[in-house]
């Protein structure tokens, strides 16, 4: 039954994959005029132009171009960088780990802060922490993350000197260094998510705590904490699971800004560089891999939701 459900969800992912790849591919159609000329610049030789056209498949009909791009992509061949000549797939995958570490930490921070704020504000309504949580919920969704990053760099790097302003250390290299280097970027990335989770969990917890089964739990003799822990939180977290999936995509996108601010060699920075260098295959590769990651995460959140809520039939 469960595998049937998995299979059906996977089946839904396939058309999504086709369309998203089509969108990624179509980016090249947006380039005004002759893409080869636009990519290489005005003083490119005719020789080089023909070579690039052949390399990008621009001399073929569009559907054929897409087909050959897609079949190559499926085999892991995303072309070569126009700038350095390295394989796009290698460049992207070498940066995947960095971005994943940053985003995963940001996710953890979002959840820790979100849970903390939401629960305390629900338990102590109209207390200072409730007001703080609500203030945070409003501010966190509006503050430009790169501005937040700059403020934190001024405080923690420039003035206090506690954390590095730029750079990244992988967790496999040096766990403490990783923690130090990831804290600021992950917090800036996660503050939006934390605010979203705070807002949503707070309102869904308030709603759940009004429900009849919470009254039943009290009537069994449970006190506030066990009631929240065993009967409130899991029910209130259900809608947050879906949000978490969306947040992941959001954070992945925001890495283009945050990784640039903190000079983190991840996918976001690669995306920005490839645009500035007009390295089109590289840009397509980054976008494609990010969307793939998002589709996978959406699939996982769907499955988690299905496992958490017994009312969802796997049939």
């Amino acid at each position: 039954m469960f595998f049937k459900f998995l299979f059906r969800r996977l089946f839904y992912v396939i058309p999504m994959l086709l369309i998203t790849t089509l969108v990624v591919f179509s980016l090249i159609l947006l380039i005004p005029g002759d893409p080869a000329l636009a990519l290489l610049g005005d003083n490119a030789t005719e020789e080089k132009l023909t070579l690039l056209r052949a390399q990008l498949g621009l001399d073929q009909p569009i559907m054929l171009q897409y087909w050959s791009w897609l079949t190559h992509a499926v085999q892991g061949d995303l072309g070569r960088s126009l700038f350095t000549g390295e394989f796009v797939s290698e460049a992207v995958f070498s940066r995947l780990g960095v971005t994943f570490q940053v985003v995963a930490t940001a996710m953890v921070i979002s959840f820790i802060l979100g849970l903390l704020f939401a629960i305390t504000s629900v338990i102590k309504p109209n207390s200072w922490i409730d007001y703080l949580a609500r203030f945070f919920g409003v501010l966190g969704t509006a503050i430009p993350n790169f501005w937040l990053a700059m403020i934190l760099v001024v405080i923690f790097s420039v003035n206090l000197g506690w954390l590095p302003a730029t750079g990244f250390t992988s967790i496999t290299e040096h766990p403490v260094g990783f923690f130090k280097s990831v804290l600021l970027p992950a917090f800036c990335l996660g503050s939006f998510g934390a605010a979203q989770i705070t807002r949503q969990l707070r309102s869904s917890l308030l709603e759940v705590l009004e429900s009849d089964y919470i009254r039943t739990a009290y009537s069994k003799g449970l006190l506030l904490w066990p009631v929240i822990w065993r009967h409130g939180l899991r029910n209130a977290l259900l809608p947050v699971v879906t949000t978490a999936g969306l947040l992941f995509g959001n954070m992945l996108g925001a890495t283009v800004v945050i990784e640039s601010v903190f000079a983190i060699p991840g996918m976001g920075q690669l995306a920005v560089h490839s645009i500035l260098q007009r390295d089109f295959p590289m840009l397509q590769g980054v976008v494609l891999i990010m969307v793939l990651m998002i589709l996978i995460i959406n699939f996982i959140t769907d499955v988690i939701y299905g496992m958490l809520d017994p009312r969802i039939e796997f049939e």
Binding site: S211, D212, Y213, R215, T216, K220, N235, L238, R311
Partner: peptide
Amino acid sequence: RGNEISMIFQDPLSSLNPL
């Protein structure tokens, strides 16, 4: 509560935790 005095409610569906 629940030990010496216990209670049942009007709507059993909403009074049971669905999860």
